[in-house]
Design a protein around this nucleic acid. Sequence first.
DNA 1: GTCTTTTCTGGAGTGAGTCAAGTTAACGAA
DNA 2: TTCGTTAACTTGACTCACTCCAGAAAAGAC
Lengths: 144, 144
Amino acid sequence: MPTASDFERMLRGASLRVTAPRIAVLSAVHTHPHADTDSIIGVVRQNLGAVSHQAVYDVLRALTGAGLLRRIEPQGSVARYEARVGDNHHHVVCRSCGAISDVDCAVGAAPCLDASDDHGFVIDEAEVIYWGTCPECTTAAKSS
Amino acid sequence: MPTASDFERMLRGASLRVTAPRIAVLSAVHTHPHADTDSIIGVVRQNLGAVSHQAVYDVLRALTGAGLLRRIEPQGSVARYEARVGDNHHHVVCRSCGAISDVDCAVGAAPCLDASDDHGFVIDEAEVIYWGTCPECTTAAKSS
DNA sequence: GTCTTTTCTGGAGTGAGTCAAGTTAACGAA
DNA sequence: TTCGTTAACTTGACTCACTCCAGAAAAGAC
């Protein structure tokens, strides 16, 4: 787990100012992957005390823009953030409880990046979301 | 292009009641693929006159649930609907203008459905979204 | 034609996220 | 160290897609 000074280095590397809210948000997302904005606000406030929700929204946007965080938003869910960036990985989402897990790319480094007919689009990323049922919900459904 | 009686047959096939708003919504989505709810409401009102937005939301949900329509919502966009259901196809989304195009599956009928490590999830669908720049935006960017 | 059930209307409400104006603090330069 | 600039934070109002609710209307079964 990265330390506060690691986070500081990451911020400086992205030429962003180092502030307590930013460190706290970065840390919260590292310890709570796939957390939604509300939970992040909660965690940040536990560590720092009062922080405006607006600040957290701003920080999340700044960090996402700088490539330090990645924003994901599966259908029917609010925005979630994760700290694992730079590798091409995807997600499985549980239809029943909304749980999210990371999945490494099925077909090498850049899977499915070739669309059969790209309609002239210049494609730079392929995002894959697997939909299914998580182990907990599967067993819960069986026993009912 | 399907006719009103085709739509009627589709509704009956899904054991849904046949009403003017439903026919109109079905027709609107067929003629305007990837339209958002607001545009659909607009098209429906052009054809039918006054229809409440609530009715359109209800109809869209009923038709989506019955499998007659498919709901897609790429990040940063509101919900959109398309009438092409039952075949496993995906979408390219333009980062700059939000345009959406259909893309057939790159790797056969069910692409990438095998995650390398599924964490015990029972996966039933793989959704792929390609991100890029559409032809219009590409040429616009070059000329500027 | 009458009855039951589903659908539609109109209006109020919810909640994630944004906008705007003013204050505060980070950090490079003097 | 202090100063000034500029980015970041606070507060609070606001937007907008979407939902909930209660009553009215219409579709389909008998």
